[in-house]
Amino acid sequence: MTTQTQAAQAAQTDKDGQPLLSVQDLKIRIQMDNGVMHAVDGVDFAIKRGQTLGLVGESGCGKSLTSRAIIGINPKECETTGKVVYDDESDSNLDLLALDPKGKRIRSIRGRKIAMIFQEPMTAFSPMYTIGNQIMEAIRTHRTKNKKEAKKIALEMLGKVGISDQEKRFDQYPHEFSGGMRQRAMISMALSCNPELLIADEPTTALDVTIQAQVLELMQSLQREFGMAILLVTHDLGIIAEMCDEVAVMYLGKIVEQAPVKELFYNPKHPYTKGLMKSMPRLGGEKSVRLESIEGSVPMPIDMPPMCGFYDRCKDRIEGVCNAKAVPKTYISDQHTVRCFLYADRPEGELS
């Protein structure tokens, strides 16, 4: 076991009582021509050190806006409220949302302690600079000003993510890399400063199955080595099952169900979660059995009345209840919560 790994595990053990990151009542509003869009509406979750939390849901449910709000890189049109409490070494209750998004404090955390893998590496990398130059920029900003040392670290990280002939690749531009190699290069840049939290926004989008498996295995290997936490944003339940310790299911800007991964897969409660599970192809399943689909489409969250956002698509809806008021959070167990009136006879916080 490496010294780096031992240090990471020791830090995790020392701080097991407090989450590394806690998102509290996060709301993101966007003013549109025809009203106010409630893109993210009261999201809560926490991530422990060394844990992988999966944020899953359909496109447009608010996953990416939520993840980007953590490090303050959403567009200026996004009006963000709530708290993102980070357990920083100098302040265990540091609210990242209260910081100036262009200030020195958040810039010292962004990229250094909280890093991000973006959804499309071709647009995340600048086409004007070499891959090596861009990885070195992150290292020289957060770790060392020495060019030779920064280049050595960059070459080591390229090798660690499985890119061969690092010296040659270091001086190449993004368009000279394949999709899988660009994704690996982005992972190397994100991990070059040994972050405590890695936000991975659809890290395997547009990759073929073989490369996807390699990228996921690489992330797990580096997580074990560095002891970092991962927030994995995806719409792929197969990736969630393989990678995550806990899952938060988002729909229309809200987390409608959250549970440990095995609990969610074997005992889903929300009708939307159940629909997602039934739409998954399974190995060994009968060819004659058609996969189920969730009928309808996601409504636009513009000036919506207080009601269940899944009402129009739900087969189990209760007329006069689900469309009459906001849905409370119900505790199925101390680790399993759901927002659904089918379980709302128990007050919030009351365990089954």
Rank of each mutant, 00 (worst) to 15 (best):
V338L: 02
T205W: 03
N133S: 12
K254C: 03
D95W: 04
S192L: 09
G253A: 09
D14N: 10
V85S: 04
Q51F: 06
E196T: 06
F341P: 02
Q212W: 06
S126Y: 07
K325I: 00
P299A: 03
D14A: 15
E246D: 08
D303N: 15
K102G: 00
K147T: 12
T234R: 11
T337M: 07
C322E: 09
G62H: 11
E79A: 12
N133K: 14
K278S: 14
T81Q: 12
V338K: 02
P299E: 02
A39H: 03
I211D: 03
E348W: 05
P195H: 13
A344D: 08
V327T: 12
R339N: 11
A248Y: 11
E79M: 07
H38P: 00
V209M: 05
S64P: 09
M1H: 04
I139K: 10
I71T: 14
N74I: 09
M189W: 03
K83F: 02
Q214M: 04
Q258M: 13
L191G: 04
I106S: 08
T2N: 14
I255P: 03
D334K: 13
D100Y: 05
R346K: 14
K151S: 01
A11G: 00
Q31S: 01
L197E: 05
I294D: 05
S221L: 10
Q134N: 14
S22Y: 03
M136S: 15
D25Q: 15
M186A: 06
R184K: 14
T52F: 02
L155S: 03
I163W: 05
L264S: 07
L55I: 14
F341Q: 04
C193T: 13
F310M: 05
G159C: 06
T2K: 06
N267G: 00
C61F: 04
A326R: 09
M37W: 00
T13Q: 15
Y343K: 03
F125I: 12
L96P: 05
A190G: 07
Y251T: 02
R290H: 06
E295I: 07
R290L: 10
I230M: 15
A154V: 09
E263F: 00
R49P: 06
K102S: 08
A185I: 11
V40R: 05
V56L: 04
T52I: 08
Q51V: 03
R112N: 15
V85Q: 06
N194C: 05
Q24A: 02
I131F: 04
V327F: 07
G60L: 07
P127T: 12
A46K: 15
L97A: 11
K27L: 01
A248V: 12
G238H: 13
P305N: 04
R313G: 08
I199N: 08
Q183D: 04
A326F: 07
T205Y: 04
E286W: 03
M122P: 02
R317N: 14
S67G: 15
L158R: 09
R143M: 05
M136W: 02
I135M: 13
T66K: 14
G238N: 11
L252Y: 10
D44H: 14
M250A: 10
M157N: 11
L55F: 10
G17Q: 13
G162T: 08
S352C: 01
V43H: 11
L276E: 06
L21D: 09
E202K: 05
P195A: 13
A206G: 02
T5G: 00
P301T: 07
R105Y: 00
A10L: 10
R107V: 00
I109T: 08
I239P: 08
R107C: 06
Q24T: 13
K274G: 01
